[in-house]
Amino acid sequence: MSRAHVYNRDHINTDEIIPARYLNTDDEQELAKHCLEDLDEGFVDKVAEGDIIVGGEDFGCGSSREHAVWAIRGAKVQTVIARTFARIFYRNAINCGFYLIESPEAPDHINDGDDIEINYEAGYVMNKTTGAEIKFNPLPDFAVEIINDGGLLEHVKKSM
């Protein structure tokens, strides 16, 4: 099962996702130990592989640190669902092959602890706990292409 960890708040920023005091490393497993530490100290103890983070508007605002995406990915989180994402965080996620789900509605239909299933290609979130089904706009084709290539560097390597 993929459990939802809901943070019903806007502007969850990169300092909360991975505090700068841990930026002296870029090791993903090391960063994962501190994922969301300043937002929810207990997060890393309760998160399981494939779980989902749910946030409000402007998720990932602040720094350009890709470490924020790595910390989340390193914690084995499957995806983040938010009403909107901050620009650099969103771009970083695409560039390192991590799929994000932007949906203004989905957070209204997910409670903390709900079991969630996502169909990325068809573009819907299934809340198995409540039965709710919420559509979202899939990523644009160029972004999917980058993700399918395994990230931006693999993508640009093809034309080098």
């Binding site: 602040g62 650099i88 560039n95």
Partner: peptide, 27 residues
């Protein structure tokens, strides 16, 4: 670095990027 937008004061287009973008830009 996200504050790379600073240089726009000089009528330049300037923006902050993450590490993967940076790698692509460098190469």
């Amino acid at each position: 670095d996200s504050h790379t937008c600073t240089y726009g004061a000089f009528a330049a287009f300037s923006t902050g990027i993450g590490s993967t973008d940076l790698a692509a830009a460098i190469a």
